[in-house]
């Protein structure tokens, strides 16, 4: 492995050896100067604590800068865009809802006017019908009354005629009865008796 590694570095790793030497000169001179080119493959870079300080410093600088940019500029701007869009959509939806309610109200008003007109027309028709019915009722009632009056008059007349007729019938009956009784018995009956008997028979 080691001859291989040396071959590697002599063939391809020259810049790295130089770079290491430079780096070493800055901080950890002795350590790095002492390390032969072949050994750098053996020291596992992530566990090489000599690089930790520089990595941490750079991480602090770069991540700090990123945090600043993200927190102060990028996120507020993105929030603005995203929330702005959400608001815009919401307001558009509200507007659409309002317009829909408006058109619904207009439609309702139209339907109501239509229904009102229909109700009014029907009311007028009903009224006319009722007026006609009332008129005809009145006429009929008047005719009825007149007829009833005439009927009553006729009835009275009939009753009077009948009364008169009956009175005549009674007299004739009494005379006839007196004659019959006289012929049969030879005795002349009392007028009162005859009348009584005729009345009783007529009343039956």
């Amino acid at each position: 492995m080691i001859p291989n590694a040396i071959a590697v570095d002599s063939a391809t790793g020259a810049p790295i050896v130089l770079a290491q030497a430079e780096h070493g000169a800055e901080s950890h001179g002795a350590e790095h100067m002492a390390s032969t080119p072949g050994e750098h493959g053996g020291a596992f870079p992530p566990f090489d604590s000599s690089t930790y300080a520089s990595q941490l410093i750079w991480l602090a600088i770069t991540f700090g800068a990123l945090y600043f940019i993200v927190a102060k500029i990028a996120l507020p701007r993105l929030a603005n865009i995203v929330e702005g869009r959400a608001e815009r959509i919401e307001s558009d939806l509200a507007e659409a809802k309002r317009l829909r309610a408006e058109s619904k109200a207009a439609e309702d008003a139209f339907l109501k006017a239509q229904a009102d007109a229909r109700a009014k027309a029907s009311a007028i028709a009903t009224e006319a019908r009722e007026a006609v019915a009332r008129q005809s009722d009145e006429n009929r009632r008047r005719l009825d009354t007149e007829m009833a009056a005439k009927l009553a008059a006729a009835e009275t007349q009939i009753a009077a005629t009948k009364q008169a007729a009956m009175g005549n019938v009674r007299g004739i009956a009494a005379d006839a009865a007196a004659a019959i009784v006289e012929r049969l018995s030879g005795a002349t009956p009392a007028t009162a008796e005859i009348e009584q008997a005729v009345d009783a028979t007529l009343a039956r």
């Binding site: 063939a11 750098h40 493959g41 596992f44 690089t51 520089s54 750079w58 770069t62």
Partner: peptide
């Protein structure tokens, strides 16, 4: 033997105190 899988993790200075690691941190940011 030109393939050393660990070599890619080596931290090397590029320009003064700027290492390859620092460069890529800066690039990421």
């Amino acid at each position: 033997g030109a393939i050393d899988p660990i070599h890619q993790f080596q931290i090397t200075p590029l320009l003064g105190p700027v290492t390859n690691s620092a460069t890529f941190m800066i690039l990421a940011v």
